[in-house]
Design a protein around this nucleic acid. Sequence first.
DNA 1: GTGGTCTAGACCACC
DNA 2: GTGGTCTAGACCACA
Lengths: 124, 124, 124, 124
Amino acid sequence: MQFNQSQAIYLQIADYVCDRVQTGQLKPEDRAPSVRELAVTLEVNPNTVMRSYEHLQQQGIIYTKRGLGYYISEDALQKLNGQRRNQFLQEELPAFFHKIHLLGIELDELKERYDAFKAQHSNP
Amino acid sequence: MQFNQSQAIYLQIADYVCDRVQTGQLKPEDRAPSVRELAVTLEVNPNTVMRSYEHLQQQGIIYTKRGLGYYISEDALQKLNGQRRNQFLQEELPAFFHKIHLLGIELDELKERYDAFKAQHSNP
Amino acid sequence: MQFNQSQAIYLQIADYVCDRVQTGQLKPEDRAPSVRELAVTLEVNPNTVMRSYEHLQQQGIIYTKRGLGYYISEDALQKLNGQRRNQFLQEELPAFFHKIHLLGIELDELKERYDAFKAQHSNP
Amino acid sequence: MQFNQSQAIYLQIADYVCDRVQTGQLKPEDRAPSVRELAVTLEVNPNTVMRSYEHLQQQGIIYTKRGLGYYISEDALQKLNGQRRNQFLQEELPAFFHKIHLLGIELDELKERYDAFKAQHSNP
DNA sequence: GTGGTCTAGACCACC
DNA sequence: GTGGTCTAGACCACA
């Protein structure tokens, strides 16, 4: 996995896990990959993965069973949908509108790009 | 001016200046506000403004005349439009699409929000 | 290290690092001395070293690994050789020729001085 | 005239005057161009030219006749040749040798470049 | 431990 | 007045 250098790695890992939950690859009550395992796959320091998991745990997306590992919370999906949606609508969307306004792009122009995007990601 | 704490202040200042160029409040060959002046208006340390200006200078948006001040480059607008547009289309847009896809939002739903946004910013 | 007062210290530090790369004391993918470490050895403020490193980074000579330190780019040597050589041939050499021409010095006269210089720097 | 931004303008003007003396375009006891006149030709602030002249006067290259203007000193040429030659040999030459050494350039290689340079500047 | 940002205050050269 | 450099010291996020 490649990391964007403009955002903290542990946040990118947390986002990656959230994505997998939202897309159903990780279901409630599933066991999340172990810290060491994920650290190897992503080629990062285990401490960094640990920090991601602490971050997710704090938000109630995952929880820990002592000696067993981290598990996806039952209400992870609802939390994610609510939480991310709110943040998106209140913070990111205005910034997004500001940008396309400055660039002189209209929403209509984005439609075909979005269709292309969807086509590309549904049949990889 | 209020600063977002998730991004460096000097970058936000640089963005602010770019915005003023893109909206035509600062025209090519205009003199940019002096470092000290802008520092006072934005209530930050002059060093911080200095850093913003160095950042903009190395991108070719502004240039310096010895002992006189900083001036907007002749091709600042073109550079900004090209540069920001490219970055937007190649980096931000895919991330944006990814998000709305995960959240199950369709582009059509954003239209009325965008109209509201435009109305709000044209008649403050 | 002694600094020339006619040039900014942070540029002299950057030059110093470049020299070490060109002479092979620092090899591609090596870790550069940490900001604080170099600041102590050179007896300057850490901010000043930081500025040198930022300067080198934006030229692609070094890059940063989050939380780990600065590393020499893989193509640092090629960049340096190309960049410095071009600047030398196009800017410094004409000025040099201009000067010796005004002073009435011929290239031949410099040869023995150059030999002396080389002898002095190979067997210190 | 175009100015290099890495050196103070007033020094570049001073150098320009010295060059004209060394090449014989300005002879001892000639009147130097008036401050205002030179300021117009070079498109700079008269204060800046004034500073150049003060600088040259301090070195004894020119002197002032009250109400008449600045004149080239009788011994200007000798001073220039001695002074510049010393500075050149002691400060610039070692730096120059250092550079070509790092770049792996030999003096012999510069010979033909120098010939080309002389040819270009004798028959413009 | 590492880099990165910010403040405060000083001093300089330049126009 | 302008930009530019440097120091000192603080605080933060990251690995």
